[in-house]
Design a protein around this nucleic acid. Structure first.
Lengths: 211, 211
DNA sequence: TCATTTACCAAACAATGTTCGGATTGTAGC
DNA sequence: GCTACAATCCGAACATTGTTTGGTAAATGA
């Protein structure tokens, strides 16, 4: 991990390390006490700083949260990357979908924070969809897109006039995201065989995209 | 609306009306300024009360929010009820799904608040799923359930061993909820033909449940 | 060695949810 | 109508929040 801190001056390295310590503390507080207990003072206490000292590293609490969310998206992507890519295409899609849901269930507050931010960076007017955060290398969506592409090449998914590859991936994302969201919020206390229901949902959407 | 205020004493009627005024003010603030601008003082100002006075009607800000959310779920259900029930079953399902999404897009802060509450009333241990909030008369889920049931009776949806009526409705809810959530949060700035993509998603899931 | 930038903090500020004590108002019983 | 009691309602305060300010100490570069 030290290796990543490139050819920076000692000062810049310390700065980056403290910045990361702030983010780690924030993440730990969110995980241990929930997002509503995340305060500048709590972060400062945990890393032996004063609240005011944090403003040397981040402009505001919002910026800290935004940075935590970026790391969260990277982490989510990495979780999905643990699924063996040599699985049969449809099974692969199912598994990365389930991994997405599992991530949300293991880190409900974190996940909720990541997908509740309404203050996104506004895209410049003329930008295409590739410019969007969704298509970043850190995002998890490209994995879905690539999975759908592979399934299509294997002939297991039929791209029709009414369902492009992009739209197929969007549908998959939506159903998986909807399940994750509902299960960590509205359906948290619902007694139900979710393992079964989730698989059924994924099978249904897969069948709907089959030739 | 006066008719609903039953056979209560004048005092109880005033009480109920003030309670409703508080909820209306809260809803208006959420709609006009966003959920983060919702404060006890803002509510009090709007209805000419002092902040302390509100505590005669609600125990806390959380209770106010919970009540606002309950009304939100009723409103969402009513929005979905405007879809003509005599449409062909599959088309009916598509339309109430689109109504769900439309509600979220027209009231993003409201919708987000409704489905972000993680402090739900814990279900008593021995309770079945019918006891859950999801199955309330105010909830929108029963509409989906009933729609799926009708489609099944018309032979347009095949209930299989791996996909009960309940699970089919759950799948539909998930995809619609996922679309709604993504579009008002992560994908807010995404330039994309959502009208097309949403229909494609709903068609795909419908095809996946067809015989 | 000295001047400047960096790192850091104590103290204060404004805004928040909530509580407390008392004042005012409405109601029920006589 | 009068009185006692309960219901409303509010000013003032408290604790907790994010953030700013002014200044001190340390590190850096000349």
């Amino acid at each position: 991990m030290q290796a990543l801190e490139d050819d920076l001056s000692p000062r810049a390295r310390r700065y980056a390390r403290t910045q990361q310590a702030i983010l780690d503390a924030a993440r730990a507080i969110i995980h241990e006490q929930g997002a509503d207990k995340l305060s500048m003072r709590a972060i400062a206490d945990r890393i032996d700083y004063s609240p005011a000292g944090l403003y040397e590293y981040f402009g505001s609490k919002e910026e800290i949260i935004a940075a935590v969310c970026r790391q969260g998206h990277r982490l989510l992507r990495q979780t999905m990357l643990t699924v063996p890519p040599d699985l049969p295409p449809v099974e692969y899609l199912t598994e990365i979908g389930l991994a997405y849901i599992r991530f949300a269930l293991s880190n409900p507050d974190y996940f909720l924070l990541m997908f509740t931010q309404t203050s996104a960076p506004a895209l410049e007017p003329g930008a295409g969809f590739v410019e969007h955060e969704m298509m970043d290398a850190d995002s998890s969506f490209p994995l879905l897109l690539q999975g759908v592409q592979r399934a299509r090449e294997a002939g297991l998914i039929q791209p029709r006039a009414e369902l492009s590859v992009m739209e197929a991936a969007y549908s998959l994302w939506a159903i998986v995201h909807g399940i994750a969201m509902l299960r960590i919020t509205y359906l948290r206390e619902m007694p139900m065989d979710f393992a079964r229901a989730d698989r059924a949902a994924l099978e249904a959407i897969a069948r709907g995209m089959a030739p």
